[in-house]
Amino acid sequence: MIYLDYQATTPLAPEAFEAMVPLLRDHFGNPHSTHRAGRQAAAQVELARDRIGAAMGLPPGQIIFTSGATEALNIAISGMAQGAPPGRRRIVTLATEHAAVRDTVLALEGRGFEPVLLPVRRDGLVDLDIARLAITPDTALVTAMLVNNEIGVIQPVDALCHLARAAGARFLCDAVQGFGRAALPQEADAVAISAHKIHGPKGVGALWLRNGLTLPPLLHGGGQEGGLRSGTLSPALCAGFGVAADLMQRRREADAHHVEELWQKALKLFEGWAVNGSLEQRYRGNVSLRRDGVDGARLLSDCRDIAFSLGSACASGSGRPSHVLQAIGLSDKEARGSVRIGFGRYTSVGELEDAAGAITQAAERQLHVANGAHET
């Protein structure tokens, strides 16, 4: 199988795997216990926390381990909404946000908040003039995704953060797809990341909180993670996350160069296909493509030895059209003809060439059959 779905998840780095094994097999103490086995496990958790903090490159703050980015985003959104002054009931986000943000923001309407979903342009980017009008003095929170998971565009999060601060609102960045691939907003109040998007293990994420920001807990229990997120941490998952973050930081330039080479190759291999989203303001490892007359779902079925997708893995089984593709103005037909190719560190040029050939041939067969039926 050729794996081209890096936005859904990335292959686990061998270095991360090797760091996890001893903590699963030998050093299995509960990191919240006070005996030696517990202290040994806790030391590995704190080492991972330090490594992740260094890789993020943000001002001093807390790093709270979570079960993943969805939990981190829910903690931040619900917590900052709950802690907002009485006069601030507006929550501003983008129409193209991941469901973990979008659905959480919309759910807050039932608690007396006013969700505002900002539209995006055809290139997938937010119009800052519209954002400026929407972010008013009664805004509690502005939240935006750094790199869109479906179409790869890089939003102007620094500008959105500045608008939020000018209005006295908090700013949360969903950096799940952007961590290590685009600059994190230095003035943000909170940033959410996930291990399995950077060649770490699934089942662990983190929420960075600016020093001085306190949130009410979403989960109650043993009071772990400073009382914000109760539950026993997995030292193995944390260690794998930490090593993956450290490796990402050290390989940042090499990985970016490799992805750029693959991006340029993909544009040539998929000549005749249109790219969804901005060609300039994007992460090059995400290639969202469409072709008139092609059915993306049939392409997936016809190319079973290639792992690629129609859009977000989290919504792939919903049967609903992509809200991201709808938000950038694609027709239902254009959305149906869209697929997402994702590559990265472990993708070879040869794999991309073979996959592109198979996908293009399958598309040509579809078009041939459709044209024949039309002529008949």
Score class of each variant (00 low, 15 high):
Met1Pro: 13
Pro11Ile: 06
Glu15Met: 03
Leu23Gly: 06
Asn30Lys: 08
His35Glu: 14
Gln40Met: 12
Glu46Ile: 01
Glu46Pro: 00
Leu58Val: 09
Ile77Thr: 02
Ala81Trp: 00
Arg88Phe: 04
Glu97Gly: 07
Ala100Ile: 00
Asp103Gln: 14
Val116Tyr: 02
Leu118Ala: 05
Arg132Ile: 05
Ala140Phe: 04
Leu141Asp: 07
Thr143Arg: 04
Ala144Arg: 01
Asn148Gln: 07
Gly152Ala: 05
Gln155Asp: 02
Pro156Gln: 08
Val157Phe: 00
Ala169Pro: 00
Ala169Asn: 04
Phe171Lys: 05
Phe171Gln: 02
Cys173Trp: 05
Arg181Pro: 03
Ala183Cys: 04
Ala183Gly: 01
Lys197Arg: 15
His199Cys: 13
Gly205Val: 09
Trp208Glu: 02
Trp208Ile: 04
Gly221Val: 07
Gly221Ser: 08
Thr232Tyr: 07
Asp246Ala: 15
Asp246Gly: 15
Met248Ala: 12
Trp263Lys: 10
Trp263Asn: 15
Gln264Glu: 14
Phe270Lys: 08
Glu280Trp: 08
Arg282Ala: 06
Ala297Asp: 14
Asp302Lys: 10
Asp305Gly: 15
Ala315Leu: 15
Gly317Asp: 11
Ser318Asp: 13
Arg320Asn: 12
Ser322Glu: 04
Val324Thr: 09
Gln326Val: 00
Ile328His: 01
Leu330Gly: 04
Lys333Arg: 15
Thr347Asn: 00
Thr347Gly: 10
Asp354Val: 11
Ala358Ser: 13
Glu364Trp: 05
Glu364Asn: 10
